[in-house]
Design a protein around this nucleic acid. Structure first.
Lengths: 114, 114
DNA sequence: TCCTTAGATCGATGACTGTCAATGTATAGT
DNA sequence: ACTATACATTGACAGTCATCGATCTAAGGA
């Protein structure tokens, strides 16, 4: 049996995946992974994540204009990225500051190529 | 400016992406990447890719039963994975044999973690 | 030349997703 | 308290997607 890493998706803990090719994914693993890739499968979210990962921290208010989306839409997308564990938000005063979670990106990357 | 690799999506060639975090993605880059992640964002396709990557070659006919999907659905999913460059198919006689494209998976992986 | 088989394509349908206007909920300043 | 601000949530709508039955195409075999 291949090495297994632990990956957290939303609330559920997933024993996850030597590599895509090392062993056939179970239905449950595939569902959880699909959620993560689904979060990455939207251009607006990819640009959003790219912006957040490029800076140390980004305020929600700084995303609206460059992405040319309304405030509710930005909120919707940050929610999905956060649910996938790709970003984390911290509310300080009136602003929510978002940070990327590099370990998360690396976990997904390892899954694809190890 | 960050290192740029070349990535082919379907027919179009994309100058693509030091890393998500190294520089903000353009709209065009984000669209192309979203297509790739979209191909990975379905549980049936992930299991399919996992099966193909685990063997050397897999016949379409060998996917129907374990995935519990109809033949048109299998055909639909292989098409999407192939359009994203993640698998390639070769028709030999009556059967189509599918192979994974590891370089492709690695290119995506590098994008996430380099 | 038929018949069979593997796979692709078409058409329909139900489910999901991105989007925004309107509204709700805190927080900060006055 | 009152007002303004930064986000979240809700509701609605349009567009996309997964799925399958039916049909089509191409390749073998009899």
């Amino acid at each position: 049996m291949a090495t297994r890493k632990t990956l957290v998706v939303g609330d559920s803990v997933v024993g996850c995946c030597g590599t895509l090719g090392s062993q056939v994914l179970s239905v449950g693993e595939a569902d959880d992974l699909a959620q993560i890739f689904g979060a990455l499968a939207d251009p607006a979210r990819l640009r959003m994540l790219s912006m957040i990962a490029s800076s140390d921290e980004v305020c929600s208010c700084a995303l609206e204009q460059p992405l040319e989306k309304s405030q509710p839409t930005i909120s919707h997308h940050t929610r999905i990225l956060a649910a996938a564990g790709l970003i984390v938000g911290e509310r300080r005063g009136r602003w929510t500051w978002w940070r990327a979670v590099p370990e998360r990106l690396e976990a997904v990357a390892r899954l694809l190529s190890d």
